[in-house]
Design a binder for these strands. Structure first.
Lengths: 127, 127
DNA sequence: GATTGATCTGGAGTTGGCTCCAGGTGGGTT
DNA sequence: AACCCACCTGGAGCCAACTCCAGATCAATC
């Protein structure tokens, strides 16, 4: 199993080093292994978790919920809860997509309307 | 043309009264008409604008961009800029939808995997 | 005309989620 | 052994976007 320095973990996950420490303090991440000298040593598993956390975060899961997921992930017997949490999040993503679809249509409609107005105005000026 | 009190404008737009004042201070909204006594009186046009601003805001447009849109809306000759701004926003919405689609698949996959694990573990316990 | 509730103003405070800082240590290189 | 850069800790600071507050005013009602 490979190991990673804080800088590598940050580069690969897209979180900043400060954010990685913050997530650990907040209990989103487990206590990360340390080297003899006290530096953090991230494992493949940690990186995997980070990748998934980034997905959740990027799709709007709050720090509070992230912490809940992190805590559950440290207990083997919580898979049903994790499923529930993920399904809830999936539902919120679907809702969000629906909302975005609706607004996208409205924004495009409005842009079209403006384009029509512009043409109309140009026509008036030229006639 | 109907008119609306701050409370009505808030109720219909979904913004709080404080937010309406904030948006006006920030130049997102135009200076709203006042009654003899100095109270704000919102017009149908204002409410329409608020409805659209809410769509933009809810789909992640920043206050900064909202202000830009608001400012442009006060000048008749800026329709091309408004179109550009809306198209840019439409593009960002489309990008966001694509991202959400991707993550949604991944989250569902993970939930499925957990469900598989749960079944496996139950099976082991029962056998 | 007194009460009550909505609204006014300018400015301070809050929240979520980081981000930065000071002062100190680790450890590979010259 | 001296250098230097990455990293450590605890805690302060920051940013966007509101949200709340104090003290005053307006307007409809008793």
């Amino acid at each position: 199993m490979a190991t990673y320095s804080p800088a590598e973990a940050a580069a690969q996950s897209g979180f900043s080093i400060d954010t990685l420490r913050y997530y650990e303090r907040e209990g989103i991440l487990p206590r990360i292994e340390r080297s003899a000298g006290g530096r953090r040593v991230y494992s493949d598993g940690d990186l995997w978790m980070l990748g998934f956390l980034r997905c959740l975060r990027d799709t709007g899961m709050s720090i509070e919920q992230l912490r809940r997921y992190g805590e559950l992930s440290r207990d083997e017997n919580t898979m049903p809860e994790r499923v529930a949490l993920l399904e809830e999040h999936a539902a919120s993503i679907r809702g969000r997509i629906a909302e975005l679809d609706t607004v996208l249509a409205r924004v495009e409609e409005k842009a079209d309307w403006y384009r029509g107005e512009i043409r109309r105005t140009e026509g008036a000026a030229t006639s």
